[in-house]
């Protein structure tokens, strides 16, 4: 009965093998990871593309709606002289709130992580932190900046600059080095605030990070890309 013995052995082996296979498959399923790294990468890439398309569509809808609103508003104020003043005030307020593209004289600050030849051995000294950006923004606001933008993100009333591990998030959008901080305001005052002795840029540049400020005659700052939503705010009478 040699054949029987062979069959039983093979059966037992297959039994052990399938147990191991099932356990492995279960483990991998629960770990939510694919064996092939490239497959996981591709799935992520697909997901990103889908989300991007969704975002683009939503953004286009928003732009269309805004155009429509503008048109309706214009039509409504066309034959009314008192409404024209209101329209003017509305436009100005929208500009201040960050809802329109603005331009004017100002400065541009460039902050960039240090090159590998930094004098500091501490890796934390060699990168731009969110607090550095906050300090620069504070300095600019203190010097009378009227509009500030960081890597295309306009700072508005509801803006926040937060640290999320290895990235910085402004207005909920991720931004990374190098940081271009543009501010509209009095050129000399903004420039002076950032280049005085012991200024924040000196502190940032101390360990080899790039921190430069240049005067720019005509800065264009784009509008806030999100929506300003006030749900709980009410006027106190």
């Amino acid at each position: 009965m040699k054949k029987k013995q062979i069959a039983i052995t093979l059966g037992i082996m297959c039994f052990l093998l399938t147990i191991a296979l099932c356990v492995q498959i279960k483990t991998m399923n629960s770990a939510n990871s694919t064996v092939s790294q490239s497959l996981a990468d591709n799935e992520l890439r697909d997901e990103v593309l889908r989300m991007k398309e969704k975002y683009d569509n939503a953004y286009r809808d928003l732009a269309n709606a805004q155009k429509e609103l503008e048109k309706v508003r214009q039509e409504a104020t066309q034959n009314d002289s008192t409404a024209e003043a209101k329209e003017q005030a509305l436009r100005e307020n929208n500009m201040i709130l960050g809802r329109t593209d603005v331009q004017g004289e100002g400065v541009e600050v460039i902050l960039e992580d240090a090159a590998s030849t930094s004098s500091s051995l501490n890796a934390s000294d060699q990168i731009i932190h969110f607090s550095d950006i906050q300090l620069v923004v504070n300095e600019l606001a203190n010097a009378g900046a009227e509009a500030i933008e960081i890597n295309g993100q306009r700072l508005v009333n509801t803006s926040s600059i937060t640290c999320e591990g290895n990235i910085i998030r402004i207005n909920g959008e991720r931004i990374g080095t190098p940081f271009y901080i543009r501010a509209i305001g009095s050129q000399s005052r903004l420039y002076g605030a950032l280049t005085r002795a012991g200024s924040i840029l000196d502190a940032i540049a101390y360990y080899g990070n790039r921190a430069e400020v240049t005067k720019v005659d005509n800065i264009v700052i784009s509008r806030y890309s999100g929506t300003l939503n006030y749900e709980y705010l009410k006027e106190d009478k």
Binding site: G11, F15, T18, I19, L21
Partner: peptide, 16 residues
């Protein structure tokens, strides 16, 4: 024998 082993193994392995 192989198929039997595989089926029993799968049944037990799922509950492991």
């Amino acid at each position: 024998a192989i198929i039997l082993g595989c089926v029993i193994g799968a049944l037990i392995g799922v509950n492991m």
